[in-house]
Design a protein around this nucleic acid. Sequence first.
DNA 1: TAGTGTGAATTTCTTCACAGCG
DNA 2: CGCTGTGAAGAAATTCACACTA
Lengths: 224, 224
Amino acid sequence: MAPVSPRRRIPEATVARLPVYHRSLTELKESGVTTVSSEQLADLAGVNAAKVRKDLSYLGSYGTRGVGYEVEYLLFQIDRELGFANDLGVVIVGLGNLGQALANYDGFGDRGFPVTALVDADPAKVGSTLHGMQVQHIDDIESIFADGDLTIGIIATPAAAAQGVADRLVAAGVRSILNFAPTVVTVPDGVHLRKVDLALELQILGFYEQRDATEAVNAADSDS
Amino acid sequence: MAPVSPRRRIPEATVARLPVYHRSLTELKESGVTTVSSEQLADLAGVNAAKVRKDLSYLGSYGTRGVGYEVEYLLFQIDRELGFANDLGVVIVGLGNLGQALANYDGFGDRGFPVTALVDADPAKVGSTLHGMQVQHIDDIESIFADGDLTIGIIATPAAAAQGVADRLVAAGVRSILNFAPTVVTVPDGVHLRKVDLALELQILGFYEQRDATEAVNAADSDS
DNA sequence: TAGTGTGAATTTCTTCACAGCG
DNA sequence: CGCTGTGAAGAAATTCACACTA
């Protein structure tokens, strides 16, 4: 059998942009557009055209010189690369405010990531129904993942519980984790971990507000 | 007056890590630790020690050779850099599942970003109370920001409404926006925009699951 | 002597610019 | 002719390695 992907490794920065192109292409497809140039796609994705071309070139040569890219075909290729064939289930651990919102958030299922289980440690929550699903106890986590389906674990617990949950997820065989708890979580090699830290984003914005304000003051100083 | 910040510009990547150091240092302070080495801080923050030292060096020379950094003093410096002095208010626009969760999320207020207003376009929601706050109508947005306090706008609307909301926020004088809507939003120069795209994170994880699975198959092939 | 601060080396990412193809 | 695909240049971020000093 010929090697399936002898293509050079796709850079991380590119991987992070593929879903954005995917979304833009889906919109184009839905509005009946069949062909798109790197320039147009760049506009939709909020990046520049050179980057689009370079990014897409890692997937292969799917464009047509002088014309552009065929929307549907390109979409198919990105789908394949992102593993849209296999619907990855999502298990949400921790059903406080954020966890509950995530459980009810349709954006996951809409984009191919159905929520397949809800888990909490609080006996008061276990057994209750959320988004048409029974909340299960964290101690049953092994059996929840026992079916062997590829699954992503979402940690939406308080910070103090996050590492423990991560350890249990890993022990249960989970290889992809998305951490919403505002703390650093470490996982063994081979397990993929990404984090979303809401307050951190605000702090970053705060830095720039602060800096701009300071600059304005300094500029005023040198005026005088 | 002497220039306050003639220091070289702080790289973006460093800015994004300062809040993480901040959190780790806060924990250290709370457990009574007074001094920390770059190595220890690196462990807590989940990065390597060289990076910590380089990052901190952009703030100034606040360490002591042979000893490390004084926790409290370093914390103070990062606080100052992140603009913790001025409590930045947060206005949440869009009170669907996610917006409501964000409104109830204590993590913002706890970290110095009190939610100061809730806004929606749906007349059914306007006037109702959430997290002890009356929901206001998007048309009143100008008056909400009229007091001139520095404020961050959070967009938690459906994708289709996001750009319009961003435009109105900018028109009302908002200079920092955090966008949760799964779509590209553009803002004029001088306005800071960050995005959090939940499903996008899952798609990135999906890519790596997919790739690992493919690699495993290929490895098995070359075995045979 | 332990650990910072930082030039220099390396790697990664972005952008340029243009040859080459449809 | 128009737009892709990509080497090469440039910029940003990371890591190395060690002089220096409290």
